[in-house]
Nucleic acid binder design. Structure first.
Lengths: 346, 346
DNA sequence: TAGTTTCATGCAATCGATTACATCGCTGCA
DNA sequence: TGCAGCGATGTAATCGATTGCATGAAACTA
């Protein structure tokens, strides 16, 4: 036995069964209006009877395409991305393209494998959720003709012309700060993401801008370092506790950090929002069920994935016909969701 | 312009550059010891110079394979699965196989597309994380030669001979119940998953067995219905509150439900573990940071994914050589992690 | 030294679907 | 009646890598 693929019917078998040529069968499938209605019916019946399935390898070879798109995820184990993936697969479901996922931070030689994806094999397009890839991997200018279309989602490269799907991060941060100020807080801190990350930078910028608008203090020691993770949120709790002069509210750049922060404070006997108010960012599913439930900036994760996928499909189709690759970018709206973790200061 | 793939070098170009035949180039890549060391070096250099990348469509066509494996996930948006996926992609990274993901509960006509995966195209193997697929889709007996190898992970079909990678669910449930009993609880309830799910059944069975061993009450009204989700945990909180005669501890079949349960009780002013102890199942990342931190049964999710992937690779390789598809199954160990959400009854 | 084996390599068929081009029969118009 | 035009279909080349078989050289055996 050499495998299971042995005796599966080919397009030739269908053609014979239907009494037509393979070309007609092929057309009945991929260009239905190029065959007469009668013939199409006969072919479809023959396909049914033989149990024929197209061989994608052959189709892709002939069409000079890969038949799939690749999603580069910084960390698959991070639940934040699962709903984005869900949106992507949803939008891709009817497209005929496969969805491949690759974890960019995963050994071994991830970099080499990503290059493999980029150089016009394996993928007809890419959705990149990680803008912190090695510089050269994503460099825009070089040999543009050898890259499949790319759409950035969530994260992006500054001053890069390629299309992106993002949310209004700056506005989100402002909403958070204003919300806390509205509650009466005047001493507001910010727990940031990883240093080089564009989201970190943008959200911190928004936070600063809002604080400035409101004439509130912007204190370096109230801007805590983190990396979006639960653990870094817990670590920030210690930093907060160590301060002599503490902010009465902290805006965290991710819900995960907010949960870690609150959880660790709880262990130390500090109550939220009684002693400190907390606002998160993302509105992950657990946010509504956390104790206390988490005030946060909601971003439409599934929609981000869906939008990015549709945009990529459009780019692929466009590139097939002519070369006018438009790089329009979408900015999806964010929304403040007020819950228990934020309250007026004591 | 017709696309980006236009002028990418073919194996012919490499052969010309190296002054050898295409056969030799091909062998230098896929069977290095069939060419002399000298030739191999020359070929590798030529590949480097030309920037050649194999065309996977052509390779797969010739090799009569799909070049990828498919993971069927019941719900991609559920973070529980992301770490399993992470383990799978990790184990697959060096294999040369692509990892495709498909959400089995996603419109439209998901069923049809799954059949597509099953019938020896697109995928050289499947990892199935959802044992509740339509019967006929996964029926074991029919036309076995037309199915690629399948490995079930997490969930499985009862009395199905195909290989599975699971954890010891029954033992996990027993650990949870015994832990609560050790703390002094005698009135213990169980929040279950979706009715037809094999995990629900097995964990409930383990819970019942442990309660029986300990001579504790097994009360129908203390077995709550759920579906593994946060929302169903919150709903169960209302069921618990509605009881006149309440259990002092509840073992939940998933961490998500445990969090939903605790969160909703919190809203109603009921404190955990003061008024009721809670034990979860899964040890998702947030469990350690929840308020209160969650006592739970840890299962090695990344390892499950990794094990399933390796098993599948072995099956694929095996099927290529001879037909002895061994169906050995792995049961990975679980572990109780005691945290704050469980304490002696008042 | 002649015969046999082994190793490295080349030649060319092959995987299965798509599609440019050719063909054929009709319709419609002059 | 004759011919352009059109729609439906067939023929056969093609996509690019792999691999069975053949070949020639080198190494080994008797």
């Amino acid at each position: 036995m050499k495998g299971f693929a042995q005796n599966s019917p080919r397009i030739r078998d269908v053609a014979d069964a239907a009494g037509v040529s393979t070309a007609t069968v092929s057309r009945a499938l991929s260009a239905p209006d190029r065959v007469s209605a009668d013939t199409r019916a006969i072919v479809l019946k023959a396909i049914e009877e033989t149990g024929y399935r197209v061989n994608h390898a052959a189709r892709n070879l002939r069409r000079r395409q890969a038949g799939g798109i690749v999603v580069l995820v910084p960390n698959l184990a991070n639940p934040f991305f699962s709903q984005i993936l869900s949106g992507i697969t949803f939008a891709m479901a009817t497209s005929g393209y496969n969805v491949l996922i690759a974890d960019t931070r995963q050994a071994p030689n991830a970099e080499h494998r990503i290059l493999d994806y980029l150089h016009n094999n394996r993928a007809d397009g890419l959705i990149v959720l990680d803008a912190n890839l090695p510089e050269d991997v994503l460099s825009a200018g070089d040999t543009p003709n050898h890259h499949p279309p790319i759409v950035f989602a969530c994260e992006w490269l500054d001053a890069d012309p390629r299309p992106t799907v993002t949310i209004d991060n700056e506005e989100g941060a402002k909403l958070a700060i204003r919300h806390l100020a509205d509650l009466g807080h005047t001493r507001i801190g910010h727990l940031m993401g990883p240093p080089d990350n564009i989201l970190t930078i943008t959200r911190a910028k928004g936070a600063r801008a809002a604080l400035a608008e409101l004439d509130l203090a912007i204190r370096q020691d109230w801007f805590f370092d983190g990396d979006f993770s639960l653990a870094s949120g817990a670590a920030a709790a210690h930093a907060w506790l160590a301060l002599n002069d503490r902010p009465t509210a902290v805006f965290c750049a991710s819900d995960a950090m907010a949960c870690g922060f609150i959880g660790e404070l709880h262990h130390k006997g500090v109550r939220v929002p009684d002693e400190v108010s907390v606002v998160g960012f993302d509105d992950i599913e657990i946010a509504a069920h956390f104790v206390p439930s988490l005030t946060t900036i909601a971003q439409p994760r599934a929609l981000i994935g869906e939008t990015a996928a549709r945009k990529l499909l459009a780019l692929i189709a466009e590139g097939r016909e002519n070369g006018s690759a438009t790089g329009a970018s979408d900015i999806l709206p964010v929304q403040l969701v007020a819950r228990e973790s934020s309250a007026p200061p004591r």
